[in-house]
Design a protein around this nucleic acid. Sequence first.
RNA 1: GGGAACAUAGCUCAGCUGGGAGAGCGGCGCCCUUACAAGGCGUAGGUCACAGGUUCGAUCCCUGUUGUUCCCACCA
Length: 912
Amino acid sequence: MHKSYDPNQFESRLYQWWESAGFFRAADTSSKPAFSIALPPPNVTGVLHNGHALGTTLQDVLVRWKRMKGYNTLWMPGTDHAGIATQMVVERELAKEKKSRHELGRKAFIETIWKWKEKHGAIIVQQMRKLGASPDWERERFTMDEGLSKAVREVFVRLYEENLIYRGLRLINWCHRCQTALSDLEVVPTDKKGHFYHIQYAPGIVIATTRPETLLGDTAVAVHPEDDRYTKMVGKKVKVPLVGRLIPVIADAYVDKEFGSGALKVTPGHDFNDYEIGVRHNLATISVFDTKGKVNENGGAYLGLSVAEAREKVVADLKDQGLLIKVEEHAHSVGVCQRCERVVEPMLSHQWFMKMKPFAEKAISAVKKGESLSLQDLEKRDDAIKILPETWHATYYHWMENIRDWCVSRQLWWGHQIPAWHCKKCAHITVSRSDVTQCGQCGSSEVEQDSDVLDTWFSSGLWPFSTLGWPEKTPALKTFYPTSVMETGFDILFFWVARMIMMGLHLNDGKVPFKRVYLHAMVRDEKGQKMSKTKGNVIDPLDIIRDYGADAFRFTLTAMAGQGRDIKLSLDRIEGYKTFCNKLWNASRYVLMRLGAVQDGDVSRVEAADFATVAGVTGGKPLTDWVQESFSKMHPVNRWILSRLQHTTIAVEKGLEEYRLNDAASEIYHFVWNDYCDWYIEFSKELLASHPERVAETQICLLHVLEQTLALAHPLIPFVTEEIYSYLPLRTGVKKGDALMLKTFPTAVAALIDETALRDIAVWQEAITALRAFRGENNIPPKARPAVTFEGNEVEKGIGFIRALAQLDSLTRETGALKKNPTTGQILAKHATFFVQLEGLVDFSGELKRLEKERSQIVADIEFVQQKLSKESFTAKAPPALVQKEREKLLGYQTQLENIDLTIKKTKALIK
RNA sequence: GGGAACAUAGCUCAGCUGGGAGAGCGGCGCCCUUACAAGGCGUAGGUCACAGGUUCGAUCCCUGUUGUUCCCACCA
């Protein structure tokens, strides 16, 4: 064992061992209870970013914990084909060679992407390995592999047959750059500066618009039905400027009288609200742009112009004709393509849609059910979901209640091609599970498969069950569905989580895809800004792992994963947790040294034969058993650390159970650093040195508590704990080559909590701290070893430990001599008073200052309590136990005040 | 326009059903005591954003204000 902690020495070695030994594998069938998580499949194009790192870590913590708890644990990994994103990446590659996908043709292009995927698709899953992730890699899936594609087709056909998927001519969002339809979610509202053009539309009608070019497709002018200014004009026809088309003036309550002139031009072909108006009033819908963003034949003189050019020319022409009244600056929000950030155009188009209302109703009720259940009750059912943090419930309901049909078709080549065949003869559409060669209606063989593919989220919406073999009733599906937890970022709550819930419920007889949803925060840079390549503030997780180790990174992410908050990632914090790993490492070296495992200054593994003490004392029993049997006979210090360990175990388990992983991290951190290292190891030095009869017992406790701590911490910091574990002595129940990751997770034992020991040691600690503070504040040289006496009965048993840890020469009961001596300093601890001969040690004026500060604190305390107690309202209305406690506190303070006044008097005398 | 979250020590954050505010880092002082200087010991630092209200008592519950962030919708 090296003298210092160096994660690069062992992380990859341990990972290879775990993976090749098959420790990550889950069993399709098992007598053990099941626990399963479906990994949110990262895009094949992706490289690991901090968001992935956070999700991967949190899931791995849960998975490793449950595995150690004895669950048949499945963490299902895989990647997503990510339609648009991947197609864009490969097209960009092609562009470098001055080629386009159209030159290649569909078949060759798809082959190119597959090749690209084979080459680059494994990058991100390799990177996850560096973090220590433990999914069952042998089950890894891809959304476009054979099984999953089959599932996608099955779902499409089934929903079509159930009339839940339909083809229709609707206004959809169209991206001119990506050349495809987009769902509502893929359109991102973005603030842009634009202009407000006021147009003399017709005599008496001025219309303000931000998009003058759309007037080419206007089919009405709308006013509010109760707008007196226009009542007379309703029903009349007006001419569209520049175009000359006659269109009606209609009345519709959608129009806001107060806004602008109160008149609205209606372009059903290129605006969603206008489209609705068009439907209500039976208006014609005229598309004036083609799929590439050029004005089409409906645009007359403007044919062939781009949207921007058309706007310029329309405005110029209006100006020429004197119809442009004014142009104002106008900031407004414009829908932009999520992928390429180009402004999207509402377009009338034939697309495939999925009806959402029936799905949404069930999806709402599953979460409603879950909301009223405790986490324990939730485990027992398969029809309810709880979202945590619960604040997301409202957002979820709101979205579900206002949901619109989902446009699932995309005009891309990379993805699941829609299993629908169009007949060239009769135009009938045949939807089928198997490839179609004959029209289902007229029998013609002139059929052609629909060229569209499905939205990526359609296939990922099936992920929790398609990866388990659905629609076949496989053993894995039976064992692991519903999955236990869905852990992902809140940014894909609607894109993905909501759709999995809808699909999962419908296609699995009302069984939810997962029982809990945990939404984690967004990882930002240390200033709270979103990390992005353009800002140059990206911290690469792989760099972090290289510089600080995967464990330090994992611990940081876990410790900062408080619910609902953004995580500001700072390297300082990661470095701090690297030192924590180092602390654990060195504490382990101490333990091993005290077990006799020292060779040339390096600690090596202790073989069973060398470890005579343990074997001799325990009689070959497992440590856990021996510790329980011997507990009542142990030294208070050993009982104390065992008690603290039980409390820590309870707290860690609670944190994991309630998904307060940051609490679990903090419990482990403080137990290791404060209880174990700062106190117990120091106490153990005294035990080993001065209590020969306690040596074996203490060695066992050092080892046992370390081992249990390693197990508790393993889900969070798997590498360093596993590495240390490999150095621990072999003994009953622990063979060479055993893995910590397969060990049983500690369970708190109530019989190992000794309240008396907890209290006693707290008294000693308080005394030691008081003595140390006295030394520090009086500048007593660190090397000085004063002789000290004490009064009080509670520290008696701890004399040796107090003497050692407070660095005293001796600590004996006060006989009266030192107390009377005028040069004696008094130290008031809570449960004892100490007397120190100060002559030659202390600067008395410094001591006086300290005492007076302490006195003013006591006086303030007295005033505070007195004030509280003087109010009759308090003594009458507050709980009697509380009032009693306050009275006792007051008495205690008053005694302290008397004591300190005496000491101050004495000290003052000394200075004179 | 509607909704949500957040505002606690110089910085980053805990504070889980109201009873005298905590951690890590940073600061300051002393110490290289053989597990660890990536360390030890001690210490300073906060009218818990602001204003009201409920209560014997509010960082915590309610209302409002200010500031930051996010989500939804998009009045052309």
